[in-house]
Write a protein that binds this DNA or RNA. Sequence first.
DNA 1: AGCTGGTCCTGATGGC
DNA 2: TGCCATCAGGACCAGC
Length: 275
Amino acid sequence: MPELPEVEVTRRALTPRVVAGVVREVCVREHRLRHPVPDGLDALLRGRELLGIGRRGKYLLWRFAHGTLISHLGMSGVWRVHDAPAPPPRRHDHVDLVFDEVVGRLTDPRRFGALLWHSAAAGEVENHPLLAGLGLEPFDPRFSGAWLYAGIRGRSAAIKQVLLAGDVVVGVGNIYCSESLFRAGINPKLSARRLGPVRCERLAQAVREVLTQAIEAGGSTLKDFVSAEGAAGYFMLDAGVYGREGETCRVCGTVIRRIMQGQRATYYCPHCQRH
DNA sequence: AGCTGGTCCTGATGGC
DNA sequence: TGCCATCAGGACCAGC
């Protein structure tokens, strides 16, 4: 269930352990992820130095001189780092990136994740079809109320669904979407075109705050997150609304509601988010 | 059994 | 009318 904060925390946890390492072997045990894992990764990466790990939205970008390994965790994916040699793979351990001292292992029970190769010869990785349509990063200085306003104006769908779509701003998954709207005091059912510049400003701010806090909360569990022992759970220590149907709002005491929007659950406070 | 999670694609709809 | 952007829904999975 990784959203942007979990992916960012993963990136930060992986970086000191694998960056500058040289790949000795890539072992793909299961190709059937969200997109098929390409053949030939082992030949492609063997002997190559990992230069860095970046992130775009929820995609991790493993940079090599000759291209980028793009990984997405889907809903159940986890990267773990083991000291070499890694223990025997278990069910759902689909890929190993073997370095001299450590092994990065991708585990993904539901196989909604992805692992793809983008050759430097094909141009900037930003232009990869999966990345090209993504909205602005929430921590990009260009992301603002004005950007949000420009991006959602005229769109008739509910603000919850427009925000979730990721073509205006990335990284706001189902959980943090509910949380951001709660923090901004905006009704998730409201048509996006009803939002003016003032509420867009509040929402942009709320998105940044919610994600920042989640990353910080995840940072406190950083050591465990990529340890061999396994993943930390979810970061959100105390949700304002998510998962709190029937409980009372921490601000006003009203009972939190759960509704379905596009087959996804949305939680909100009917009083704090009246309009 | 039904529900959950995040894209990505297809086909439908709406506005100009 | 056609074109384009947007929208809704289905598909992909395993675990509880």
